[in-house]
């Protein structure tokens, strides 16, 4: 067995063990912490699969933000956890569920073992056309040139999810601030950590954003890091969560998608197709879209975590 195969095998076993823990353990909080560890292991798996951009996204969003979101909810719902578990299904249902899950796994495993060879690939097409986009990172070229429509729709999905969450607010607190936990202890460790970590995090977030043109990184990974720094500021009580009725906030949130749509419209006018870039100006357009998306994504990701408005305007 080669060292590389041994490493992969150990990683796969750890992944299965952690996922099994997250799914099967009794305590919800223990499950969520297991899920966060699982997210970190998954990041390593992505590195092994030669997907450094995906690894960064998984570390930031899959493990980090999702874990944070679930942990917050688990703490809030702790009082009813015991009652919810009482409705556990009987043995027969469990056996049927295990059979269903097992057959799906077997079908997928069969599909994996019989994948066509040689594998179909779009890599040659990307390699042939990447020079036109003037960016060095093929993934950025796919995200913002070849499949830019996907990225535009993704930004719109984020805005829609945020509107969906806001609309869950009680009528009396509509337009108010999310009820995010706030620590007022100015000598506390969180306060101290926020003061030390946020400047460093902002620099790293900006760096990851900027190198995305030519190396692994990009706006989503950078925006997630910046959103995490914002959440840290709010958690430590250094900044309050924003009023969702604030016009400035809403303007920044839609800025990215609007610029993206504007650049797309410009493409159909100048380059002959929606989201087409005029010859020689591709990189300029891509940087403009990314720069506009960065603040919007940062705000949206942070607001998705903060949840529905909980406090009336003025409080």
């Amino acid at each position: 067995m080669t060292p590389s195969l041994a490493l992969n095998l150990a990683l796969a076993l750890l992944l299965l063990g952690m996922a099994g823990w997250a799914v099967l353990v009794r305590s919800t909080q223990a499950a969520v912490i297991g899920f966060m560890v699982y997210g970190l292991l998954l990041t390593l798996a992505w590195a092994r699969l030669d997907g450094l951009d995906v690894a960064l996204t998984e570390a930031a969003i899959g493990g980090g933000l999702t874990g944070f979101l679930l942990l917050g909810a688990a703490v809030r719902l702790r009082s009813v956890e015991h009652r919810a578990m009482l409705q556990a299904p009987g043995l027969a249902t469990r056996i049927l569920a295990a059979l269903a899950a097992g057959s799906i796994t077997l079908l997928l495993a069969f599909a994996v073992l019989t994948l066509p060879s040689p594998a179909p690939s779009l890599a040659p097409a990307v390699a042939e056309n990447i020079a036109m986009t003037q960016v060095g990172n093929p993934i950025t070229a796919v995200l913002l040139a070849f499949r830019a429509l996907d990225t535009l729709l993704e930004a719109l999905v984020l805005v829609l999810a945020m509107i969906g969450i806001w609309s869950l607010a009680d009528d009396r607190v509509w337009g108010g601030r999310p009820g995010f936990a706030i620590a007022h202890d100015a000598s506390g460790i969180l306060h101290y950590a926020a003061r030390i970590l946020v400047p460093i995090g902002v620099v790293i977030g900006g760096y990851i954003f900027w190198i995305g043109a030519d190396d692994p990184g990009g706006k989503f990974q950078g925006a997630t890091l910046l959103a995490a720094m914002w959440l840290l500021l709010v958690l430590a009580g250094l900044r309050d969560a924003p009023r969702v009725s604030s016009q400035t906030l809403r303007l920044w949130v839609v800025l990215g998608p609007l610029v993206f749509i504007g650049v797309g419209g410009l493409g159909s006018w100048v380059a002959g197709s929606f989201l087409g870039y005029p010859q020689g100006y591709a990189k300029l357009m891509i940087v403009a879209v990314e720069l506009a998306l960065l603040p919007s994504l940062t705000l949206i990701l942070g607001l998705l975590i903060m949840g529905a408005p909980k406090r009336e305007i003025g409080r």
Partner: peptide, 30 residues
């Protein structure tokens, strides 16, 4: 498996994966 043309992996599915991870997060948040 789609590694070709000097790239270690097919970048198109990888880019779609980044989109997928972000969309999955927004669905979880909702």
């Amino acid at each position: 498996r789609g590694a070709a043309a000097g790239m270690n992996a097919d970048p198109v599915p990888q880019a779609l994966l980044i989109t997928g991870i972000v969309v999955a997060f927004s669905a979880s948040a909702l």
